[in-house]
């Protein structure tokens, strides 16, 4: 497969299935971290122009909290964990990292906690995928940003390889008033490796 627009229904279904495996590990990690039950929705797999990524729960002009990892080896691509600001505050509060008198964006400890949560969840997701496929992976140091959804993805687009269209794998986490969305954007080489390993 040379272009992600060529994704067949069978391939989409396979990507959903393997995403479920990785996301299941991440959900377990999130539940352990927060001491509360977190469930998963069925992953959404779609092909989108990067500039027109339309996540199911996020308006381009809404503010979100995003943790970003660039995957630099093996299952290469870009991985993000997105929280709406209320969920982000709730997570920081559950982790005792939300100072009473400060806003999220101005609290170093709250942002550090959220960055670590995102890092752990994305690491857990990627480790499960890597184990399933027998592939290695390596990641960048995580970055966190609080900004409009569109601005976040503009920044991600500018980091490294640019592709006009990407496969966007999206999984929603939900539970105890906490919602988060994990997004994985495998690059074309990575996508070919993943689908090739599945015989697709």
């Amino acid at each position: 497969m040379s272009n992600s627009n060529d994704l067949t229904p069978l391939q989409s279904d396979a990507l959903r299935e393997i995403t479920n495996i990785g996301a299941g590990h991440a959900a377990t990690a999130l539940s352990q971290l927060l001491g509360t039950s977190i469930s998963l929705n069925v992953p959404v797999v779609n092909v989108a122009s990067f500039q027109n990524i339309n996540l199911t729960d996020f308006n381009q002009n809404n503010e979100i909290v995003a943790v970003y990892l660039k995957v630099t080896e093996g299952i290469t691509g870009k991985a993000l964990f997105l929280f709406d600001p209320k969920s982000a505050e709730r997570i920081a509060t559950l982790l005792h990292a939300m100072p009473d008198s400060q806003e999220l964006v101005s609290s170093d400890i709250a942002l550090s906690a959220l960055k670590e949560v995102g890092n752990i969840l994305l690491g857990s997701f990627l480790a499960a995928l890597a184990e399933f496929f027998g592939l290695k992976f390596n990641v960048s140091v995580p970055a966190i940003a609080v900004d409009m959804t569109g601005a976040i993805f503009d920044g991600v687009m500018l980091d490294g390889e640019f592709s006009d269209d990407w496969v966007v794998i999206e999984t929603k986490f939900d539970g105890n008033h906490i919602c988060g969305t994990m997004v994985f954007l495998p690059d074309n080489n990575s996508l070919n490796s993943l689908l090739g390993a599945l015989g697709l």
């Binding site: 982790l95 990292a97 170093d108 400890i109 550090s112 906690a113 960055k115 670590e116 890092n119 140091v141």
Partner: peptide, 10 residues
């Protein structure tokens, strides 16, 4: 650890 939160927790 580069995360101040994780250092604090540990």
């Amino acid at each position: 650890d580069d995360a101040i939160f994780m250092r604090s927790m540990i």
